[in-house]
Amino acid sequence: MTKKGLTFKQFWELSEVYTAPLNLFIILLGISAAHYLGGATLSINLTVFTCIIISFHVAVNIFNHWQDYNNAQDEHYKTVTNIIGRDNLSLKTVKGYFYSAMIISFVLGTYLVSQTNLFVGLLGGIGFYIGLFYSYGKYPLNSLPIAETITAIASGFFITLISYYLATYTESQSLAHFMTKLAGISLPLVISMFNNLLANNICDLEEDIPNGRKTLVYYLGKPRAVNLLLFLSVFNYLWLVVLVFLQLAPVTVLLLLLALPFVLKSLKVFKHKQDKQTTFPIILKTMSLTMVLYPILYFLGSYL
């Protein structure tokens, strides 16, 4: 007999709402970049956008668990690993939470477009598409070798770009004008998100193959995928120096270089052993360090 309701603990795991605050740091980077490069103005539109991001984040995570449960070919994954099968959750209840979060984000998104322009709507629409089709369809994105790249760009770049735009919005502005600069500024976040997904897929390779997922790791092989993760992690810190040199970031972001010894130590552990339970959390903490401290240091430098 399936459970019709959700406990707080089940909702916590199903929605992965505990990861939502990371989106707030991405928004903070966009606002801080706006202030540093020309001056930012906080507005109701930024508040609305924040609510959209959080509600859609919850919706996508619930949807991913739902679709992973439906698409699972491995019975152990379906009944032991996935929370829906493990806790015998009602699919009707799961769908109800998903649709509620989707309706909230869609209504707020429609309002935001009405207050700005269709280009914001276009970027938002692309983000909605990537979020929903990450785990849905005949060829879901999470089963393709482009999953890490597309997801990282949608979260790390698009959210930063729209936040920047809303913080500096005037009706005569062109969002495309800022895309090149914001691409460089958001790159540390994009790479960190890419690495999180890559490390996750490295650890899940043996589980993904029976479930028909052919991610980037499947094509590269574990050794090359690990080397790619190591290279991008080091490059991320070197890129901070480039940003300061190009005057796209305040000098305070260079304080993040102090974390490099810790990062290298964590990468060494992961290179030796790739395990979801023991070494993946180390990579997750390492990448989260950049995703949290980089926006904070940028914010401090832009306002000080």
Score class of each variant (00 low, 15 high):
T2W: 13
K4H: 14
L6V: 00
Q10N: 05
L14P: 01
E16Y: 11
E16H: 10
Y18P: 01
L22C: 10
F25M: 07
F25A: 00
A34C: 09
H35A: 09
Y36R: 08
S43V: 11
T47H: 15
F49E: 06
F49I: 03
I52T: 05
I53P: 02
I54R: 03
S55E: 04
F56Q: 10
H57I: 08
H57Y: 11
I62C: 00
N64D: 07
N64I: 04
H65A: 04
H65F: 01
W66V: 06
W66E: 06
Q67A: 12
N70V: 11
N70K: 15
N71T: 10
N71D: 11
D74Q: 08
E75R: 15
V80W: 12
T81L: 12
I83K: 00
G85S: 07
G85D: 03
L91N: 09
L91R: 07
K92R: 14
T93I: 06
K95V: 10
G96H: 03
A101V: 08
M102S: 06
I104P: 04
F106H: 12
F106R: 07
G109F: 03
Y111T: 08
V113W: 07
S114E: 08
Q115V: 12
T116N: 05
N117W: 08
L118K: 15
L118Q: 13
V120E: 02
L122V: 13
L123E: 02
G124A: 01
G125I: 03
G127H: 00
F128H: 07
L132F: 15
F133Y: 11
F133D: 06
K138T: 14
P145L: 02
I146F: 15
A147H: 00
T149E: 11
T151D: 11
A154W: 08
S155V: 14
T160A: 09
T160C: 09
L161Y: 09
S163G: 08
S163T: 13
L166W: 00
T168M: 14
T168W: 11
T168V: 14
Y169L: 02
T170K: 13
S172N: 15
Q173S: 15
H177G: 14
K181Q: 15
S186M: 05
L189T: 05
S192N: 05
S192A: 10
M193T: 12
N196L: 15
N200F: 07
N201A: 06
I202M: 02
L205A: 01
E206V: 13
E207Q: 14
I209H: 07
I209K: 02
T215Y: 05
L216Q: 02
Y218L: 01
P223G: 08
N227Q: 14
L229Y: 06
F231W: 13
F231S: 12
L238I: 13
L238K: 10
W239G: 04
W239M: 06
L240E: 04
T252N: 10
L254R: 05
L255G: 01
L260S: 04
F262Y: 14
V263R: 01
S266T: 13
K268P: 14
V269A: 12
K276D: 05
T278F: 11
F280N: 00
F280I: 04
L289G: 08
T290S: 09
M291P: 03
V292I: 11
Y294D: 05
P295F: 05
I296G: 03
L297H: 00
F299L: 07
